[in-house]
């Protein structure tokens, strides 16, 4: 297996507070990994650390075999680590189109990047609602539309690995279902890590599921995970 993303014995947290310890995992380029865990288990902190928004205290993060552990978040985004953050973090005072256009910061940093208009057309085809609301302010969108926008933004980064943090949070069941269909359609195009508390949703989507318990990874059956 050639792992796109490889995490080796990673420790991380907030300041002196360690939230997760000794996490190792690897995701292949066509694989979807599910991470299941209760509130406060350390899932969000782990994703933020992989994305570079929080510093790690020990261990390494490799993208395509390249060590990115010391890279700031914006450079990891440019290198192909996409995170759809918990709470979506839509820029409320910018239009939908401007929210999407922010990802143009990666232009010039990635080879073989199709022109922006092509990439946008592609995500508009996937989320027609966003095309309809292109000039509306991000803050005026509904929860489901905001989730679409957050995913669309991450897709425009042409990610090597796409991480989604609790994508179903706060969404109506019918929208959760269409989200599952959308994400299933993306499977295999790049590596994915989906963090959820919704086990049924993960089981629909993931090739394999690990549990996060008090800051460590364990296999679904409860035994310590030996992922790589």
């Amino acid at each position: 297996m050639t792992a796109v993303l490889q995490v080796e014995a990673l420790d991380g947290g907030y300041g002196k507070l360690t939230v997760f310890r000794g996490v190792s995992l690897a995701v292949a380029r066509d694989q979807t990994l599910g991470l299941l865990g209760a509130n406060g288990a350390g899932k969000t902190t782990l994703l933020k650390t992989i994305a570079g928004a929080l510093p790690s205290t020990k261990g390494r993060v490799l993208l395509d075999g390249r060590d990115v552990t010391r890279m700031p978040a914006y450079l990891r985004a440019r290198a192909g680590i996409g995170l759809v953050p918990e709470g979506r973090h839509i820029l409320a005072t910018l239009s939908v189109r401007d929210n999407l256009a922010l990802t143009r910061a990666i232009e010039g940093h990635r080879p073989d990047l199709p022109p922006f208009e092509h990439r946008v057309a592609e995500v508009y085809a996937m989320f027609p609602r966003l095309a309809e609301r292109a000039s509306q302010l991000g803050g005026s969108l509904s929860g489901g539309e905001q989730q679409m926008l957050a995913i669309a933004r991450a897709l425009l980064l042409k990610p090597r690995v796409l991480m989604l943090d609790e994508p179903t949070q706060g969404l109506a069941p019918i929208i959760v279902q269409s989200l599952a269909v959308t994400l299933a359609g993306l499977k295999g195009r790049f590596a994915m890590i989906v963090v959820e508390q919704n086990k049924a949703f993960l089981e629909q989507l993931a090739d394999r599921i690990l549990q996060v318990r008090s800051g460590t990874l364990v296999a679904a059956d409860g035994r310590p995970a030996t992922d790589n």
């Binding site: 978040a73 005072t93 401007d98 922010l102 910061a105 980064l157």
Partner: peptide, 24 residues
């Protein structure tokens, strides 16, 4: 302008802007 909007985004939500590749 694109740079100007990056500035505004960095102001409104530096975390989100970083995740989108903006050098805050």
């Amino acid at each position: 302008t694109r740079a100007g909007k990056q500035l505004l985004a960095a102001a409104e939500n530096p975390y989100a802007a970083e995740l989108l590749g903006v050098n805050v």
